[in-house]
């Protein structure tokens, strides 16, 4: 299984109004879920639509399981897609919606019936088969869309921000269900989202995108705890991104500390910044700034993992610091910060 199941090679699609994707290369083994993560307008949906065949790329090829898919029309690709707006057929019952793909494939009635029942049971909607989509809640409708997408046993399942129009609790619940289904059925999937918690929860691989290009790919652990690019760290927003300037084999941070920061593996360019998680900064209340960098607390936010403080330093930059609950400080408190630079992750542009 070393051969890549899905291979996107040099895909380019430009719009006259801007946007689109530019020379994207990606690969995905069978049975894995690739998450395209990026802000709106970064081209992730364009790329997904190229995979679906709903858009023709200006250049580049899409290969699936060894076959060139680029010129195959959408309806012959044996894929399925889940849309942000669900796109359930409003005139059909839930059962007919799910059965649609099987009917198009001329699956005999008895087998069709059995497989639809199976798919509806998988998403826990067997009791709702006779209803019309508009009689269901948002979460239920999305589960119908999911059942409709898996019932045909597609070669690739494409998901375009399928959870973003649902409220938080349903979203988390459906996310788990989706991951379980994908694992159990061994589905290969491409999932588009701008939400990094979704990417972390669902992806076997994550491709971070910016302005039509893939900035960085890797496993969720790679991308989240050891990002290699400044853009990735900034977009994820989980760590402080602190600019550094190289000084010989070491680096000088914006706060004047000299640290060791070798260029990340791959070595594409000089280190321009480091990422430092908010829990790698120690903060003590101190009026005279003894033993650290002086600053003032400007905002406090309570989070499940601790109390997040925003601290403004003398030079005007702000960093985020997490304190354990109970050790929080009020807004306006003078503090001294010390950085655990050993935990810093070097970043390139």
């Amino acid at each position: 299984m070393t051969a890549d199941y899905l291979r996107i090679a040099g895909v380019t699609k430009q719009y006259p109004t801007g946007g689109g994707v530019d020379d994207v290369d990606l690969t995905l083994p069978r049975g894995e879920m690739l998450v395209l993560l990026g802000p709106s307008g970064c081209g992730k949906t364009t790329l997904l639509r190229v995979l679906a065949g709903l858009l023709r790329p200006d250049a580049g090829r899409v290969h699936l399981d060894g076959a060139d898919l680029t010129d195959v029309p959408t309806h012959r690709r044996n894929i399925s897609m889940v849309f942000q707006t669900w796109a359930l057929f409003p005139t059909m019952s839930v059962r007919d919606n799910v059965a649609f793909g099987l009917r198009m494939r001329r699956v005999p009635r008895a087998e069709r019936h059995r497989r639809v029942d199976e798919a509806l049971a998988l998403v826990g909607l067997d009791e709702f088969a006779g209803r019309k989509p508009r009689q269901l809640s948002g979460g239920q409708q999305q589960r119908v869309a999911l059942a409709r997408a898996i019932v045909t046993r597609p070669t690739v399942m494409l998901l375009d921000e399928p959870l973003s129009s649902l409220d938080h609790r349903i979203r988390v619940q459906l996310r788990g269900q989706l991951k379980r289904l994908q694992r159990e059925l061994g589905l290969t999937g491409v999932y588009v989202t701008h939400d990094h918690t979704e990417a972390l929860a669902l992806g076997d691989r994550i491709a971070v995108m910016d302005a039509g290009r893939v900035v960085e790919t890797g496993t969720p652990i790679d991308v989240f705890s050891r990002p290699r690019h400044r853009y990735t760290a900034e977009f994820l927003g989980l760590a402080n991104v602190i600019p550094v300037t190289p000084e010989g084999r070491e680096c000088r941070t914006a706060f004047g500390d000299v640290i060791e920061a070798g260029a990340p593996a791959g070595g594409d360019g000089p280190v321009v910044a480091v990422a430092l998680r908010p829990d790698a900064i120690r903060m003590v209340e101190s009026a005279d700034a003894a033993g650290g960098h002086p600053g003032v607390v400007t905002a406090v936010e309570f989070q499940p993992g601790g109390v997040l403080h925003e601290v403004r330093l003398r030079d005007g930059t702000s960093v985020q610091v997490v304190a354990v609950p109970g050790e929080g400080l009020p807004v306006g408190a003078p503090v001294a910060l010390s950085f655990e630079w050993k935990k810093a992750v070097p970043l390139v542009d």
Partner: peptide
């Protein structure tokens, strides 16, 4: 009518004409 309805039909294996006849027309 959501244009994504026809796209959804296409991804499920319906040709353009079939997608129009089975999905858009009834709507």
């Amino acid at each position: 009518v959501d244009p994504n309805l026809e796209h959804a039909a296409a991804t499920l294996g319906a040709s353009k004409i079939r997608a129009f006849l089975t999905v858009t027309l009834p709507s």
